[in-house]
Amino acid sequence: MEVHMIILTGVLVTVAVYLLLSRNMIRMILGTAVLSHAVHLLLITMGGAAEGHVPLLGESDGPYVDALPQALILTAIVISFATTAFLLVLAYRTYEETGTDDLNYLRRVRRE
């Protein structure tokens, strides 16, 4: 199962890098969102979510799952969602002001 998760993480990183290398601002924002989700998936896989039982004492004997990586990833998901929402609003305002979301055009406008 972990091998499949790592392969999926690799595919997500590949898609994110492809989107980040685009000239379109919306694609770049989606690329950062996909990259953050790939990192979350990698961290949860490396944290060993598939092994052990729920960390409630007295429920079961044996190895327990560490809850710290899951709590940190939940916090990171909320932060990445807020960052993505902020970047989308910023891209929308830029599009309203300039009429385009092409980054090469926006670089030329700034120089002039």
Rank of each mutant, 00 (worst) to 15 (best):
H4K: 10
G31H: 02
E51L: 15
I73R: 01
S80K: 01
I6E: 04
I44P: 01
I6P: 00
T84Q: 06
T83N: 06
L87E: 02
V89C: 11
P63Y: 15
I79V: 15
P69K: 02
L35G: 04
A76T: 03
V34K: 01
I26Y: 05
L106N: 06
L43Q: 03
L19T: 01
A49Q: 05
L20K: 00
T100H: 04
L21T: 09
V65Q: 06
F86R: 08
T98V: 11
Y105A: 11
P63F: 15
L87A: 14
N24C: 09
Y95D: 01
I77C: 04
A82H: 02
S36Y: 04
R110Y: 14
L35V: 04
I79L: 15
G47C: 09
E97W: 14
Y105G: 02
V54Y: 12
V17D: 00
I7Q: 11
A38S: 09
R111E: 13
Q70W: 12
R27Y: 14
A67H: 10
I79N: 03
Y18K: 07
I29F: 00
L43A: 12
L56M: 11
G99I: 07
D102L: 07
E96M: 13
G62Q: 06
S22H: 06
R93K: 15
G47W: 07
H40V: 08
R111Q: 11
L19K: 03
S22T: 03
L35I: 05
G31D: 03
R108L: 14
P69M: 07
L72K: 02
A85F: 09
N24M: 07
I79C: 08
R108S: 15
A49Y: 12
I79W: 10
L57Y: 12
G52L: 05
G62N: 07
R93I: 10
V39A: 11
M46S: 09
T32D: 04
R110M: 13
I26R: 02
E112Q: 12
A85T: 04
T100Q: 02
Y95R: 03
F86W: 13
D66Y: 09
V54S: 08
A71S: 10
M5L: 13
E112H: 12
Y105F: 11
T9Y: 01
A67K: 08
H53C: 06
A82Y: 04
H53Y: 12
A91Y: 01
V17M: 09
L35A: 11
A85C: 08
I77W: 06
V13E: 06
M28W: 05
V15M: 13
G48E: 12
T75D: 06
L106K: 01
L87D: 00
L72W: 05
F86H: 07
T100P: 01
E112N: 12
L20A: 07
L90W: 11
T98Y: 15
V65F: 10
L103H: 01
M5C: 10
T83Y: 03
E59Y: 12
T32L: 14
R111S: 10
D66H: 07
G10K: 03
M46F: 13
D102F: 09
Q70Y: 14
L20C: 08
L87Q: 05
T32Y: 06
L30Y: 09
A67F: 14
R107L: 10
T32E: 04
R93F: 14
I29E: 00
A16G: 05
G47T: 03
L19I: 01
P69W: 08
E97C: 06
A82L: 13
V3K: 14
D66C: 08
Y92P: 01
N104W: 07
I7P: 00
G99Q: 06
T98D: 06
S60T: 15
I77L: 14
V109W: 08
